[in-house]
Design a protein around this nucleic acid. Structure first.
Lengths: 211, 211
DNA sequence: TAGATTGTTAATCGATTAACAATC
DNA sequence: TAGATTGTTAATCGATTAACAATC
């Protein structure tokens, strides 16, 4: 599943966001040295990464912000409008809908919940449908990704079912680690407890604080 | 800031959570081979990691779940009750309070918000205080970490101020990358947009789907 | 031209894997 | 004892850095 480019790709969203920021600040050009200072990656590696994504630098000038932003965005797929279906509309779901700029990442969202699902219900302007109509929702909207928020349906089961309906990306907030065998499917597990434990470790006596 | 043990530590919370799960399932022992299958890390590396954390395996037997869980938990600091102060009580804050098992990670939480802060207000059982009383709140509760949720105060400013008051860990959900120079402080940036973009990349044509 | 900065190669560094002796 | 499984060393693999020729 991995090879070559690999680790650079984990840095790709970071580069994109920074170029996007520069773009919104109306800065036109940037060098690997300047970039390096801002994002904490060595100039060598910045050059190597960006070169690998397509080599859009200009000798003696650096990187054209507008151009590189567009190219990186294209690689990430943000210029390609897709649909995401949110499964579950608990408080985590609500928070994500408010908090994440889905549009900036190229997604429009529909949600499905188990309980209510009265016709026409909306959260933060996105339509909420009943989970029993999932088949129909998916047929209509053809989502590429599912956002799995905590619910009483086991994620594993849910995800397999969704994969069969053609969903390929799973953004998993359930807290249960999700692994799928389906060849063309990708899972992004967001594990906040692990993130918190990482921080806990570092501030613990004997943790990273002691060099 | 880094050296030696390093990369193993990023896997530590994952090991801990899995041992915790085994423990709650009342499983008593596990081998590196069995662990490997479940968490997708090679048996060699599992052994190397756990050995590095303290070498609590037993030849010809494997790992004693209860014991290793306790030791890893100790390294992570979960057996050490600390306080976390949440800055901002918007919908992301609410969601985190409901969703994250802070107690299991060894934290009790207090929150501070800008607006209301009427005496005695609570969210999910945790006390909510006014941000203007932050000094007092911190003097009383002596939190080790701050949870930064989106708010109108720039994180950088907020974090520096909190660092001066003795807070050493910053769990940053603001969406703004936070970097601190303070030597003894640690930042864990949770960047959901980057996580979503990673997934976006993988399902994009030309992304990881193409081997 | 002189100066700046990329793309790229070679050197270094670090992390993972394979193999096996030690041991229960 | 025979079998299982760790801890640890050496070998491999991959990622980062340093250096510099090419070029605008």
């Amino acid at each position: 599943m991995k090879r070559g480019i690999n680790v650079a790709i984990q840095r790709l969203p970071g580069y994109y966001r920074y170029f996007d920021k520069l773009h919104s600040m109306e800065i036109q050009g940037v060098s690997s040295a300047a970039l390096s200072k801002k994002i904490g990656i060595s100039p060598s590696l910045v050059r190597k990464d960006i070169c690998q994504f397509g080599g859009f630098g200009q000798t003696a000038y650096g990187y054209n912000v507008k151009e590189v932003r567009a190219k990186l965005g294209h690689i990430l797929g943000v210029d390609n409008l897709r649909c995401a279906v949110m499964i579950g509309t608990g408080c985590m779901g609500h928070a994500l809908l408010r908090y994440v700029r889905f549009d900036a990442a190229g997604f429009i969202v529909v949600a499905a919940e188990k309980v209510s699902g009265q016709t026409g219900r909306e959260i933060s302007g996105i339509p909420v449908l009943n989970v029993s109509e999932l088949d129909r929702v998916i047929q209509i909207h053809r989502p590429d990704i599912a956002i799995l928020t905590p619910s009483d349906i086991p994620v594993q089961t849910m995800a397999r079912q969704l994969a069969k309906m053609g969903i390929r990306g799973f953004w998993n907030f359930s807290g249960e680690e999700l692994a799928l065998d389906e060849p063309d499917c990708f899972v992004e597990n967001v594990d906040l407890v692990e993130s918190l434990l990482q921080l806990s470790y570092r501030i613990a006596p004997g943790g990273e604080a002691i060099k």
